[in-house]
């Protein structure tokens, strides 16, 4: 029947789109679980490290590391962590909005900003935004390794060591739960001393090999790297969760669309049958 042929094809095309979004939803769901596990696996390292740093910061009070002391803020560095791919709802736009807000606050206060990005969406955004971009890394995949991040973090740390930046932040999405991801801008350097100066029950000191300064140096660099790595992992988990939710709503919308089109198709079909019948009846009456 010629009636509603276009509608039929339309329904078929929406159906095939729905198949794709449903498949993507399921893929994202299984990846989300894996990324969450990875976030959990990375936690003990950062936790142990902050314990040791806390001890060291207390023990060697005569040596004050640059990463632990505040200085006047003239220029800040920030790494923007985003996803490599789209189709994850408003995840990246929300982060970018928060980031632009923070950026405006800084520039309004007369602070210069040096930026770097992790993830291709962020790289593209910073490119359109303009401004000073120090480093970038993309396509870390689903199993990012800390090795991929060393370069970007190192550029920021060098700037900090040379006194070119006075504070160092990361902007990333924080995983709250599957439905909620909150964009955050977190300060990494100087390391929050309030957090570190928690009272210990008894006082003791380590034996240092080779010496406190060298050990603390390396430890703090690793600590910052692990925090950035955590940020990347969190952002990954957020990406998968956001994609799952976005794809679920896309599949639902496709379902609704199909129902509506089906209804229109049925009505058109019925109308054409009624018309044919009335023509036959009219023809019979005329004879």
């Amino acid at each position: 029947m010629a009636v509603g042929k276009e509608i039929k094809t339309k329904i078929a095309s929406v159906q095939s789109t729905q198949k794709i979004t449903r498949a993507m939803e399921m893929v994202a769901a299984s990846k989300m679980r894996k990324t969450q596990e990875r976030v959990m696996a990375a936690r003990p390292y950062a936790k142990k490290m902050s314990q040791v740093i806390r001890h060291l910061a207390q023990a060697s009070s005569e040596y004050k590391h640059a990463y632990l002391s505040e200085r006047d803020v003239k220029r800040v560095g920030v790494i923007l962590i985003s996803s490599d791919r789209g189709l994850c709802g408003g995840l990246n736009s929300n982060l970018f909005r928060k980031f632009v807000g923070q950026l405006k606050e800084w520039t309004d206060a007369g602070t210069e900003v040096a930026m770097a990005s992790i993830g291709s969406k962020g790289e593209g955004f910073l490119g359109r935004l303009g401004g000073e971009v120090l480093g970038s890394v993309t396509h870390l995949g689903e199993t990012p390794s800390i090795e991929d991040l060393i370069g970007v973090v190192k550029t920021m740390l060098t700037e900090y060591d040379e006194g070119k930046i006075d504070r160092f932040y990361i902007a990333h999405n924080d995983y709250v739960n599957t439905m909620t991801q909150s964009p955050e801008v977190v300060q990494l350097l100087p390391v929050y001393t309030a957090e570190l100066e928690e009272e210990l029950t008894h006082h003791w000191d380590y034996i240092y090999e080779p010496d406190a300064k060298d050990v603390l140096d390396q430890l703090l660099i690793r600590y910052i790297e692990s925090l950035v790595y955590q940020g990347v992992l969190e952002n990954n988990a957020c990406e998968q969760a956001a994609r799952m939710v976005a794809m679920k709503s896309a599949s639902d919308n496709a379902g609704e669309l199909i129902d509506e089109l089906q209804l229109i198709y049925n009505k058109a079909r019925q109308a054409s049958i009624t018309q044919e019948l009335s023509e036959i009846v009219a023809g019979a009456a005329a004879v």
Binding site: L103, K104, E123, L126, G131, S136, I150, G151
Partner: peptide, 23 residues
């Protein structure tokens, strides 16, 4: 070397972009 690589990537990505932040 890794730091330089990251820097180069960023420069390549923004070869012809304005230097002011365009809010």
């Amino acid at each position: 070397a890794k730091a330089l690589e990251a820097k180069k990537r960023a420069e390549d990505a923004l070869a012809d972009k304005a230097s002011d932040i365009d809010f």
